[in-house]
Write a protein that binds this DNA or RNA. Sequence first.
DNA 1: TTGTACGCGTTATCAA
DNA 2: TTGATAACGCGTACAA
Lengths: 332, 332
Amino acid sequence: MATIKDVAKLAGVSVATVSRVLNQGENVQPETERKVRSAIKALRYSPNLLGRNLRRRETRKILVLLNTISNQFYSRVVRGIEECAAEQEYSVMIGMTHGDPKLERNFLEMLKTKLMDGAVFLTSELDGAELAAQLQGIPVVQACEVQSTFPTPWVSIDNRRAACEATRYLVEKGHRQIGFFGAGDTYGSSRQREEGFRLTMEGAGLPIREEWVLDEGFGVGAGIRAAERLLEFGSLPDAVFCVSDTCAAGAIRCLAGEGVLVPRDISVMGFDNIRLSEVFLPSITTTWQPQYEIGYKAMEMLLRLIGGEEPSPNRLVLEHRIIERESVSPKN
Amino acid sequence: MATIKDVAKLAGVSVATVSRVLNQGENVQPETERKVRSAIKALRYSPNLLGRNLRRRETRKILVLLNTISNQFYSRVVRGIEECAAEQEYSVMIGMTHGDPKLERNFLEMLKTKLMDGAVFLTSELDGAELAAQLQGIPVVQACEVQSTFPTPWVSIDNRRAACEATRYLVEKGHRQIGFFGAGDTYGSSRQREEGFRLTMEGAGLPIREEWVLDEGFGVGAGIRAAERLLEFGSLPDAVFCVSDTCAAGAIRCLAGEGVLVPRDISVMGFDNIRLSEVFLPSITTTWQPQYEIGYKAMEMLLRLIGGEEPSPNRLVLEHRIIERESVSPKN
DNA sequence: TTGTACGCGTTATCAA
DNA sequence: TTGATAACGCGTACAA
């Protein structure tokens, strides 16, 4: 691999001149520049970014941390991050933690040592105290999945309010016995959505049957397992509010396997509005969140942070909206 | 951010000693080590990986390049890569190209300049000639989506043979008028699957109606668009062979919207066996490919390449298998 | 306009 | 066992 020295030697100039051609492009004779460029081409030279980054103290790369890309939801969030980043000539790289704190610490190490200029956390497995300690001076923004104990700016929706509205929607459709398929305490968004569900049920004077509140997780498998457990009880609720669209899809599929049809026999509501929810049969009534915008805004905040400013506001709550489809019907 | 010098100063030793404590841990007095470690803790020191990588000429990071993570299929492939990588203490980072050669060149730049030790390409937008020129000495392996003109080892399935078998399966179910939803020439796998389709149809003496061969792409939207075009013709085929499960799902959904039910009115076959295909209603008959193993084997090859050996064999064709589900039924 | 030389933060060699 | 110091490849202040 050719270095800047090789180029300088071949072009018959000093490394400084080569560097000047490469970077500013100013203060160099056209003839000299020509020689340098042809040497670069001849040697197929690319500047070693390790050396450059070390010297410049910036890498123009940012990290997106998430538990898994198999969760369809994140893909448009990342797109938002990427497009904002690209405008400022940043590249983004994705790291997966698979819910493993060790893997997350590994990525944190890269951040601490300036392998990347900053990060957007879409999920995190660490607690606020540890992260606060680790994150000293590292530009980080949280998006979607937010832990308010983290000492970082964030952008998300109001999960609790969204869940309130979703539950109220079900109630207004005439459903009275409503179950909730959540993800337990693993992630805050699920907890907040459960809160919203409970609050609204109580506000409407409707009882919550705890055997219909099942915490299996966000994924398709979670929906299937929760539905299986639901079927073990003698009676079914009128409707189920699921913590995610994938969970809802799994539940609908599992119920169908036992002859329980959605929405004929039971209504199922999702959350997120991923592509699957409009394609699924039946299509899934859900709560849309502005995935692209969440990502874009988070990246804007991160850029401010990298620039040394404190973004203001440093917490951003974006709008959500119920999207009516086929999986919820009025209670007859 | 503290550097090794700060640590050395605080501990009252030289940087060499600090480095020894950090790396080999040998040849250093317990007492000295204790002092160093407490200085490290006090200063919250982490070695700067840019400096280390520059010096060691390795980063222990590898890049996975793909067009988009919204394609569910890749997630298990990446998992295979990650688990093999982790065994050798490599971290993996994902970069998306979104089908844009410029973005891909950007990532290539990182590789050329040793920001990462090597890469697995799950897709690529460049042609063989350009890549051959760029890839001089950079360890790269292709997986899944393979261009045989690339000068790299690869691992994949036999797409053509798999498509032959899938088509034959449809024929054996009694279908005679069969359509193909592909992705055109954007990626080789689609072309090879189309070849297999055509070969088998001809071999069975069945005519191919070109208006039923539609190239819209791999995604859900592609399946929808292709189905829309299909519906514009007066008559429908007995069955459609789709290039991917997501495409099949889109097609099934679109047909259902027009009252054409799968598999009652038409059979639809997918490809890949992603999670969606077992959850979808109807569940999708498809061809499984060993996603995890493809990733794992590709990473094994890459490690050999990084180690300076040429892997042998340097092309690996793994097995596939038809999975029967609900979306294909016998022609009555 | 160009070149010399230093520093970025490490690791590794060599001498003490 | 430890320390001084030379790389690694680059950018840039300063001198020429």
